[in-house]
Amino acid sequence: MASRTPGYELRFGPPMVPVVRTLIFINVICFILQLLTKLTLQSPLAELYFGLSPELVFRGWVWQLVSYAFLHGSFLHILFNMLSLWMFGSELAEMWGERAFLKFYFFTAFLGGIGTITAQFFGIPQGIVVGASASIYGLLVAYGMTWPNRELLVFLIFPMRAKYFVMIVMLMVLFAQGERVAHFAHLGGAIGGVILMKLYTGWRGTKSTLPSWSLSRYLQKRRFMRYQEEMAKRENAKTKVDELLEKISKNGMESLSRKERKFLNEASQKYFNE
């Protein structure tokens, strides 16, 4: 059920897209395996190997920087995260496309892991972190930046625009109390969301779609920029050489300073002997 007016939309939930359905399915399966492991082995083996433990990451268990996002601490934990993934991720995935959505999802999870181990490195104990919350907070940020004036029903009761809802959630991240709250994972995911949205839409851009990023296109852009810089240097050098040659023709070689002679020699070797 939805009601649309210009600038915002009142809704209870979007249609679920395949990539979001797949991620929810994987998270649920992983949670079930967690429970079975605890019941059969009487040990949190899944959390020990695949949860995010900063001490183990520092020893080389780098897969934990992503794998932790597919484990959860309780039924309510996974329920809240999967509902959020459905409600805030489905429209973004439909707009961006599956590949771009997955890149966003994994990058924000990874940055949440980086935030956790960074806090540990600076002496803030983190314990073992699990949950998809870093990616969820990244998606919340992306949702609020894409549709800032869309009106949401918070707790199905209070209407609130998306941008204000995201601001309140971010403040809750900063001031939430409790040892089991992964503050720095949440913060890292939110920062990752801002970074990707700004990279894809531009720092001055408004609402737009998220294109598929590729390393080859990035490197090609860098090569083109270096080519432009080199051409600008050549043009400047040519102008300077012409001025010095004019000076020589009028006053002779002795009129050049040591610095001007050095420049003329280097420019002739670099730009005019090819």
Rank of each mutant, 00 (worst) to 15 (best):
R161A: 04
L219D: 10
F158M: 03
F110E: 03
S90K: 03
V130G: 04
G252W: 08
R21K: 12
H186N: 07
S43R: 13
W63L: 02
F101P: 03
Y200M: 02
I168K: 05
V141L: 12
L215P: 00
L139V: 06
Q220Y: 13
S214G: 04
R261V: 14
L85Y: 09
G138R: 02
S214R: 00
H183K: 09
K270Y: 07
E9I: 07
W96K: 10
L210P: 04
G89K: 00
S53T: 10
T5E: 11
H77Y: 03
D242I: 10
E229M: 15
M95R: 07
S255D: 08
T206F: 01
I128W: 01
N236I: 15
P14V: 11
E179V: 15
S90T: 08
N81A: 12
E47H: 12
P15T: 11
Y49W: 15
G189C: 02
E243S: 07
V28N: 15
L10V: 13
M225P: 01
S135Y: 09
Q228D: 08
I26H: 02
I24M: 11
K238M: 10
I191H: 12
A162S: 05
K221Q: 10
T22M: 08
V17R: 13
L199P: 01
R180D: 11
K240G: 06
S3E: 13
H72V: 02
A142T: 13
A237V: 06
G51K: 00
M95W: 15
Q64I: 03
S43V: 11
I248Q: 03
E274C: 11
G193K: 01
V66T: 02
R4S: 04
V241W: 15
M170N: 07
I168R: 07
K198I: 06
Y271T: 12
Y105K: 01
F224T: 14
L215C: 03
T201E: 12
G89S: 08
T201Q: 15
V169T: 15
K270R: 09
W63S: 09
L85G: 10
A100G: 01
G89N: 06
G144S: 06
L10F: 02
A93G: 06
A237F: 09
L245C: 07
S208A: 13
Y143P: 14
F121G: 09
M170I: 05
A176C: 04
Y227H: 08
L140G: 11
W147G: 08
R222W: 14
G7N: 05
G252H: 06
A2C: 05
Y137G: 11
I191N: 04
L102M: 05
K238G: 04
L187K: 00
G193M: 00
F224V: 07
N273F: 10
S133E: 01
V169E: 04
R222F: 14
P15L: 14
F272Q: 10
I248Y: 09
P15W: 13
A100E: 09
I117Y: 01
E91I: 06
T146M: 06
M95P: 08
N273G: 00
E151H: 03
L79Y: 10
G13C: 00
R204D: 13
T5H: 11
L45F: 07
S84G: 14
N27T: 09
I128G: 02
